[in-house]
Simulated assay, not measured.
Amino acid sequence: MLKIGTHLSVAKGYERMGKDALLIGANTLQFFARNPRGAKAKVPDYIDMSKFKELMEKNNFTTIMAHAPYTLNACSSNSHLRELSARMFAEDLERMEYFPGSFYNFHPGSRLGQEEEEAIKQIADMLNQVMSKDMHTTVLLETMAGKGSEMGRRFEEIQEVLKRVRLQDKVGVCMDACHMWNAGYDVAEELDKVVEEFDRVIGIQKLKAFHLNDSMDGRGDHKDRHARIGMGSMGAEATKGIINHPKLKDLVFILETPTDLPGHREEIDFLKSAYQW
């Protein structure tokens, strides 16, 4: 079974979000746990959240994923922002306990003039501060395009963070096709080599989810501008190769493409038809 969904808005409620997922043929989804470009989180509506859980159970949803806000920066050179990031992270993890077994994905952050080693230490320190052995959420570091001082463009950077995390069974990685392509990894023509390199550097068992998208820019451009499947420089065959790769086929796949619900429905239908397992 292809585990496929897209990023959906929770602004109108969790149950509405779940119904939107069903409308487009999804069996998973991703959502922002709070305002993506701010720090505020809505007061939890536990009745709405319960209805969403019931909807997921009734319709056999697979693992869902929350996304941290873009403002979260665990390796900021500003100590106040690092403290705010840790607080937001902890609050989101606490709320995700209402959906046990889910993923919480975040961008490692930008070091903003700091040395790479210091940034790696700060990210790992935050994770060790906010994660607990009793939590039921798996935290995922996302592979990044490498804009400016952005961390996570190389597998080695992510591994340096991961190996410092105490709770190894509660941390993993989410690949992003556009990000890796923009970082220089050839996921279109040399996917086998990319997967082998990830397995050698990090370990394939740490890979839990994959953001599917195309790219408006060329490989190695470090720009991070998403395109719809088959409408960018990677091409539709690249995405078909990803979902059908024997070491990737069972991952949770989340579309992060610039389109509306009907557009996502088209992409999901296309990917389901292309899935060979």
Rank of each mutant, 00 (worst) to 15 (best):
F31H: 09
K58E: 14
L55P: 00
G230F: 02
A41D: 02
E156V: 14
I202S: 10
R228P: 08
L255G: 00
S85E: 04
R219I: 14
R265Y: 07
N78M: 06
G184K: 01
D169G: 15
R87Q: 15
D176Y: 04
E150C: 14
Q159P: 07
E266S: 11
E54L: 09
P262S: 12
K133I: 13
M135Y: 03
C178A: 15
A209P: 02
L127P: 03
G101A: 09
R82Q: 01
S149R: 12
F99D: 02
E190M: 14
F253Y: 07
Q159D: 12
V161L: 11
F253T: 02
K223A: 11
N78I: 04
D250N: 08
K170E: 11
L93I: 05
C178W: 03
G109K: 01
L8H: 00
A68G: 04
M96K: 05
G220N: 07
F253H: 06
I202L: 12
H136I: 13
Y275M: 09
E266Y: 10
K19I: 10
A236G: 11
F155K: 04
V187A: 00
L23Y: 13
C178Q: 06
D217K: 15
A21D: 01
M56I: 06
V173Q: 11
H264P: 06
D214M: 11
E156Q: 11
F31Q: 04
Y46E: 12
G203R: 07
E150L: 10
E117D: 11
S110V: 05
S132P: 03
G109S: 02
L261E: 02
